[in-house]
Design a binder for these strands. Structure first.
Lengths: 296, 296
DNA sequence: TCGAAGTGTTGCATTTATGCACCACGCAAT
DNA sequence: ATTGCGTGGTGCATAAATGCAACACTTCGA
């Protein structure tokens, strides 16, 4: 069976007249060209070139095939330009994966702005904390909260997420009662993550741990309902009218936020426009993300 | 850059609706199909299929590409059938490599007969004792005098070549003079091949060695000119009116003659017809080859 | 005649593609 | 709820393709 991709090599040699010259055009080693021609001839069972010291000379059969191959090449190139050009035209879909917690107040307004700018682009949002496979286009762009992303992806760190401690606004009036706060409890996460460590453990009161809710969104809701003190990202809780920070009000830098894509998408104008836009959008949200937009 | 051969995988998956089913059609492993589709999508920067547990579902873009790809496939298949069918039609060229000594009285009549049977076939004869490369069609069929051919070629042993000792016919009348023969000399080959070994050394007189001619054709001519006794293949010398065998007239089985081709030519009707024809032709020449057509 | 520059080919090391075995998941039947 | 059968995907071993360095050959100019 013919390898259709060998047609590229055939065409290049027909035009260049030598395997070394064709190799430069094709950006491969010249021995590869020689071997690809050999295997193409074998598959066809016919000789396409005379090998001379001045290069490869086409046989009559090669002349016949060349015309057809040129036509097919033109057709294929048209298809390819149409599809890839579709990306350059800033239309079609972009698949974005992110943890749900980032979607609401933080990123969604940015997505909406981007879509307003480029009405031909559809954004599909995939909420997942799993590492979706960017290589087979399960997603094109990933927002990830990690210390260090995998080597095989490209991207940049666009923010450092801060967290602080929050209480339901319904209970805010109790903060002025002496000793009331110290009797509240954390809303726990899991058996292992019952109490905080780091700056928060050091600077905030030592509450007991109660409940187990391993989801920031649900922690937020439970907190609003008065179930305890929640440690929440600032970008989310500081914008929520039903939550208030508790004393000493400080935030802790805790998580790195990255925007990632597959290296092969570097040349994709659509994806890169999106990445650029969101990076800039988030740069303008830095005070919120780092907990500085908090007002008492 | 698109790998054009990936189009085959794309087409197969479009038609089969699943990678496993397409893999059966394409005679590859299903993971290969999956990976080839993934890399095709990556190269295009667009998704062509939704992955479901019931198989791959085409996107709208895939529907568009499918039509074009089907058309190109039909064009390519037409080209392929035309070329390979050309072989099946018993026309075009066959390149044959062989040592010169085999070409003249032994094989050439067979070639002529084959060409008469198939007037659309051209035979190119390449005289060479070198092992021409059958993989890149320097030659299609090789006649070789070897004990054991390389593993990567296919073929069969078609004869065992015999050799005997010959004298110029001009000197044949001297054979009846007592002691005359013993005073003649071998026509030597090289410094290392000055005297024969084996049956010939054992059964024939011990001549001294004179001259050095490392070519059977030239040995034959030198012998006719009276330069000495030559050891020559029977198929050649026994047909030559200017040469006579000397007593004790016996021949020695010495060389294996093989007909070889590249494994990928097994399905090539033209080549296989040629191989079959020549094998049968030589089977009918066996008495000559093994020295039994000698008449005193 | 010799050397330089072009050509193609060979052998070996490295990289990439493929196959195999296993796994995960969804769906239908029991 | 469990099992069986279909689907696609992952990790590792193996095979194939490619790149690199060296070589062989031809041609041209000094």
């Amino acid at each position: 069976m013919l390898n259709w991709d060998d047609l590229k090599f055939f065409l290049a040699v027909c035009r260049a007249g030598s395997v070394r010259s064709a190799a430069i055009t094709l950006k491969v080693n010249h021995t590869t060209v020689s071997r690809r021609i050999n295997s193409f001839e074998l598959a066809l069972g016919q000789r396409l070139f005379e090998r001379t010291s001045q290069g490869y000379v086409k046989t009559k059969l090669a002349d016949e095939i060349y015309n057809e191959a040129s036509y097919l090449e033109e057709r294929l190139n048209t298809v390819e330009r149409k599809i890839i050009g579709r990306d350059d035209e800033l239309s079609g879909d972009i698949r974005v994966t992110l943890p749900e917690i980032l979607a609401t107040e933080l990123l969604m307004p940015g997505f909406a702005k981007f879509c307003h700018l480029y009405p031909e682009i559809d954004i599909e949002i995939i909420e997942s904390v799993k590492e979706l496979n960017l290589a087979n286009r399960e997603a094109d762009v990933a927002f990830r909260i990690v210390k260090q992303p995998p080597d095989y992806l490209v991207g940049r760190k666009i923010a450092v997420l801060h967290r602080a401690c929050y209480l339901s606004k319904k209970l805010a009036h109790k903060l002025s009662e002496p000793g009331w706060l110290e009797q509240q409890n954390w809303i726990g996460w899991t058996d292992k993550l019952r109490k905080p460590i780091g700056l928060i453990a050091k600077e905030y009161p030592r509450f007991s741990s109660k409940h187990k809710i391993a989801n920031a969104q649900l922690q937020s809701i439970a907190c609003k309902e008065g179930m305890g003190i929640a440690i929440l990202p600032c970008f989310k809780a500081d914008l929520d009218d039903e939550l208030v920070r508790i004393p000493p009000y400080i935030s802790e830098a805790k998580y790195d936020l990255w925007i990632l894509s597959h290296p092969d998408m570097r040349k994709n104008n659509k994806i890169q426009s999106f990445v650029r836009f969101m990076t800039e959008y988030l740069a303008n949200k830095n005070d919120l993300i780092e907990g500085r937009e908090f007002t008492r």
